[in-house]
Design a binder for these strands. Structure first.
Length: 518
RNA sequence: GUCCCCAUCGUCUAGCCUGGCCUAGGACACAGCCCUUUCAAGGCUGGAGCACGAGUUCAAAUCUCGUUGGGGACGCCA
């Protein structure tokens, strides 16, 4: 029926960091536009001057860039279009669709409360609509909404929804300070931008009939609507700051990959049979509004982590290293000094995404973080081959990049920090002879590679008639400080012969010291 | 309170539109086992759900109505 090209939009207000729910709305809009070879518009609804902040605008732009959700037009800032809205208000006024309301906010608040208390709908009572005199003083402009009848909303996800008009109040379209309000600007912009599909959160469902009235009064055709189910917190209420980390930025800083976040967000509220893994390319192919469900979903961080681990394993070694590096740098900086990695860049600039010109409105699709700073190294340990093997050794057990960096710390610091429980359990006098034999075989291992090392360790175990664990665990704790790590031979290889021997000797000396003391 | 939306394992969901193939499938999480030098990863197994009540029908998770429950909206916020 609609032959005009698809145009969708994402219209956040810059009153907070880009929210997880907003990101999903953006994703669906972006997917829908891309699938239909349409246009995706970014619009900034900043008419609330009190709460809007540049910092938040920047975060929204950055986060969308990081997620790879590029827009074709915008960002359109509503505060730059005030005259446009006023001209529409003028049209409304001319046609007699609005009237002056001099009721003060305080009065209105009072009446609202009273109405609710008496069980009446808390809508504006229309007293200024009916008055014939024209009182002085500040006034707001109210829209004359139809008083009877029913307004139907055709929702692409929910079908036909009927609202009795008597429930709908005369909304304010122009504040007494001359600023237009949301319900007006949204209608004007969606019409001006020729938006064909408004895909937004279900929290806007009740606004839709009001907006339809405005479209009609203005003689405009409403777009199609699709109201998405909300994303809920653990307590099943709408996800908000109360639930902890809810911004895209927060997850980015925790070391989640945009691939994982996108996949996760797509799957909450939408499904495609039994499938769970969706790359952006998959989503582009498979996403449909019909696949969007009606029930709100709880944000389940464990599943996000599972997806993140999945994508971490999928990344190429180079790419993984590139993305990990800022976390490693941050981690080593935090652990303070004594590291083999020379730090000369910060994480934020490292993972830098297209956060340049917020005014350059051009498509920025899934850009890969660039501008990495190769760590400078002392000695020659950190060869490309070394990094490749390090990535393979650690990627299997990391939920997030941040955790992965933490787990790799021992590779770079002068002396490891022991997990007390692990030390107490494995760095004991009984282990002394095995550690000493390990030192000898590592000294002799030729070439210094995992296979010969493994042979040597096996030989020790056979001679001493012990299990590999009895040898490997003390060695592991001595070298990594922890009882959990990648395979011990990989650990030894990554550490290098000298550092391995140094670590083992330190541990041996420490155990001996304790024996002597105790 | 009023209006609107929603209702399948703890969580995300398939199935519902176009009733029988459903003894309700998958995934995350959880438990056990296997693999194993630890931790993961991987493999196998297991527990776990159609909110309730009427009705329609030979047959209902699927259709209808009601109840209950949850959520959202009720701003000179967006």
């Amino acid at each position: 029926m609609s032959s005009s090209p698809v145009r969708t939009r994402f219209a956040p207000s810059p009153t907070g960091y880009l929210h997880i729910g907003g990101a999903r709305t953006a994703l669906y809009n972006w997917l829908y536009a891309r699938q239909h070879k349409g246009t995706f518009v970014l619009r900034i609804e900043d008419t609330d001057r009190e709460r809007s902040r540049e910092e938040y605008l920047k975060d929204i732009v950055d986060s969308m860039g990081w997620l790879g959700l590029g827009w074709d037009e915008g960002p359109i800032r509503q505060t730059e279009r005030i005259e446009l809205y006023r001209s529409y208000v003028g049209r409304l006024e001319q046609a007699g669709h609005v009237y002056r309301c001099t009721c003060s906010p305080a009065e209105l608040e009072e009446r609202r409360r009273a109405a609710m208390k008496e069980g009446r709908p808390p809508k504006y009572d229309g007293r200024c609509r009916r008055r014939t005199d024209s009182p002085a003083g500040p006034y707001a402009l109210r829209f004359k909404a139809p008083e009877a009848g029913v307004t139907e909303v055709q929702d692409l996800i929910r079908g036909t929804i009927r609202f009795p008009n008597e429930e709908i109040e005369d909304l304010i379209v122009l504040r007494s300070n001359g600023m237009p309000t949301y319900n007006l600007t949204v209608v004007v912009d969606d019409a001006e931008n020729r938006i064909t599909h408004v895909i937004r959160g279900e929290d806007h469902l009740n606004n839709t009939p009001k907006q339809i009235h405005l479209y009609r009064a203005l003689g405009l055709d409403p777009p199609q609507f699709a109201h998405l189910p909300l994303i809920l917190g653990e307590d099943r209420s709408r996800l908000s700051k109360r639930h902890g980390a809810v911004s895209v930025t927060a997850y980015r800083e925790e070391g989640f990959l945009p691939e994982a976040l996108l996949n996760f967000l797509a799957r909450i509220g939408w499904s495609h049979g039994d499938e769970e893994i969706f790359t952006v390319a998959d989503l582009l192919e498979k996403f449909t509004l019909k696949g969007v469900g009606k029930t709100s979903g709880v944000f389940n961080e464990q599943k996000l982590e599972w997806l993140n681990a999945h994508y971490t394993r999928q990344l190429s070694k180079d790419e993984l290293r590139r993305r990990l590096m800022p976390f490693l740098v941050e981690r080593l900086r935090a652990s303070g000094g004594g590291s083999d990695l020379t730090i000369h860049d910060s994480p934020r600039t490292e993972v830098a995404t297209p956060s340049d010109g917020i005014s350059s409105g051009h498509s920025r699709e899934a850009e890969v973080p660039r501008g990495e700073s190769e760590p400078l190294v002392r000695g020659s340990r950190f060869t490309p081959d070394w990094w490749d093997r390090a990535m393979d050794a650690f990627r299997e057990r990391a939920g997030t990049l941040k955790v992965m960096a933490e787990q790799m710390t021992f590779l770079f610091v002068e002396s490891v920090t022991f997990d007390e429980k692990a030390r107490g359990k494995f760095l004991r006098p009984e282990a002394l002879p095995y550690l000493e034999q390990a030192v000898r075989s590592i000294e002799e291992a030729q070439p210094f590679e995992t296979a010969p090392l493994e042979e040597a360790f096996k030989a020790i175990c056979e001679r001493a008639e012990i299990k590999m664990g009895q040898l490997a665990q003390p060695v592991r704790v001595a070298l990594t400080g922890s009882s959990a790590s990648p395979g011990i031979f990989d650990v030894i290889w990554l550490l290098g012969r000298d550092r391995t021997l140094e670590g083992l000797r330190k541990a041996i000396a420490e155990i001996r010291g304790e024996v002597a003391a105790g």
